[in-house]
Structures are given as C-alpha cells and as structure tokens.
Nucleic acid binder design. Structure first.
Length: 109
DNA sequence: AAAGTGACTGTTA
DNA sequence: TTAACAGCCACTT
C-alpha cells in the first residue's frame, strides 16, 4: 500500500455520490470522508477538481449557510455553480440562499 | 523552514 | 439576524 494521499480521493468519491437535485455542505463531506472538522481541506480539494474538469459534481457542495461560497480566486465560477444547481431544479431565495431543509443530501446509513 | 492564505464551521456577542 | 474569533490543515512562497 503505497499511496499516502487517499484523503482527496475519498473526498471525490463522496462528492460523486451526491444525487442530482440535492446538495451537501463542506462539513458534511469532510465528515463522510473521515475528515471531521477539516472542511477547509474539502474546499481545497474541490478547488483542484474544478481545474481538472473531472466528472465530479462539485457544484453540489455549498457552505453551511446554504449559499455558494464566494472567493476572488474563483472569478466567475461561483455564478456558474448557481447556474448549474438551478439547472438541476434547485431554487435560490431572494438572499441567494438554498433551503437546506429541502435540498440537503441525507445519505442512508 | 517559517509564515501567510484559504471553495469552512461552530461559538460567542 | 449578522459579525467577529478561533480552530483546523494543506498548499504556496
């Protein structure tokens, strides 16, 4: 067993399981990836995914407030994220927020 | 090698 | 309700 960076691969595997029309939070992904409390690492991993254009639904991961996270480093990809989510049937409120009570992914035990 | 930065979150006020 | 702090860890300089 030689590889030591399975953490990111685990994150990608979890994100890939988020169903269409639903969203998950960074903290939730971190917990499912055996990285509880390390949500920032998830954000960093997804930042790299976007650059690689992999088949990972990165747009379905939002912050704990139910909103798309903004960053000057993303230029316009935050708008793209919202557009993709709306295309999956997810609605944003007037405050640009998602109703997590309705759309939050709840993986079965 | 040390310090700074960040697609986050929970607590506190 | 929003805003400020601290904690967390990987990556860059």
């Amino acid at each position: 067993m030689g590889t030591k960076n399975n953490s990111y691969d685990r994150i990608y595997e979890i994100v890939r399981q988020i169903p269409k029309g639903q969203v998950a939070t960074y903290g939730q992904i971190a917990e499912l990836s055996n990285l509880a409390g390390k949500a920032r690492v998830v954000g960093y991993a997804l930042y790299r995914v976007d650059l690689k254009n992999l088949d990972i639904p990165w747009q379905r991961v939002v912050n704990a407030k139910g909103e798309v996270s903004n960053s000057p480093l993303r230029f316009g990809t935050d708008y793209l994220q919202r557009s993709l989510l709306e295309g999956e049937g997810i609605c944003f409120s007037d405050a640009d927020k998602i109703d997590l009570r309705k759309y939050l992914w709840q993986p079965k035990l």
